[in-house]
Computed example of a mutant assay.
Amino acid sequence: MPLTNEARGVFPIAPTPFLPSGEIDWASVDRLFDFYREIGADGLTVLGIMGEAPKLEAEESVALVKRCIARVGNLPVIVGVSAPGFAAMRALARTAMDLGAAGVMIAPPSSLRTDDQIVTYYAQAVEAIGADVPFVIQDYPLTLSVVMTPGVIRRIVMDNPSCVMLKHEDWPGLEKISTLRRFEADGSMRPISILCGNGGLFLDFEMERGADGANTGYAFPEMLIDAVRLQARGERDAAHDIFDAHLPLLRYEQQPGIGLAVRKYVMMRRGILASDAQRKPGARLSEAAVAEIDYLLRRLADRDPRAAGLV
Rank of each mutant, 00 (worst) to 15 (best):
E206H: 14
L230N: 03
R8G: 00
A274F: 15
D30R: 15
R37F: 04
G22T: 05
L300C: 11
G51Q: 04
T179N: 08
G257V: 11
E184I: 10
V152C: 02
S21Y: 14
L44A: 03
S145F: 03
I194W: 12
G213A: 04
D302A: 02
P76F: 07
I129D: 06
G217D: 07
L260K: 08
A239F: 00
L250E: 02
V266P: 07
L144R: 02
A7E: 00
R229G: 14
P17K: 14
V126D: 12
T149Q: 15
D139R: 07
R233E: 15
L249P: 03
I258K: 05
G199Y: 05
L300G: 12
V46D: 07
T95A: 02
A131D: 10
A63V: 15
W171M: 08
A102T: 05
I137Y: 13
Y265H: 08
N160V: 04
R269V: 01
P2I: 01
A101V: 06
I194D: 08
L3E: 13
T16L: 03
D98S: 10
A214Q: 15
L203Y: 15
D30N: 07
M97R: 15
R299L: 03
R270A: 12
G103A: 12
L224H: 09
C196L: 09
E287G: 02
H246W: 09
P150K: 06
F11A: 08
A277Q: 00
L203S: 11
R303M: 10
A291W: 03
N5F: 04
L195H: 06
T95R: 00
A291Q: 01
G9P: 12
S286C: 05
G187I: 08
A123W: 03
F18P: 15
G80F: 01
A185V: 14
A58T: 07
Y36T: 12
M1L: 13
I242M: 13
M97K: 13
M89C: 04
A131M: 14
C163E: 09
A289P: 05
N215R: 10
D170A: 14
C68T: 07
L44E: 02
P17V: 13
S21G: 02
E60Y: 11
P191Y: 01
L174S: 09
L300M: 07
G130L: 04
G200V: 14
E222N: 05
D204S: 07
S193E: 00
L195V: 00
G130N: 00
R209T: 08
K167R: 08
G43E: 01
A96V: 09
G217Q: 06
T143V: 11
R67N: 05
G100V: 00
P161I: 09
E23F: 08
D302M: 01
T114C: 09
L273W: 03
R299H: 05
A214M: 13
R182E: 13
R90M: 01
S193M: 05
G80K: 06
G9M: 15
S286M: 01
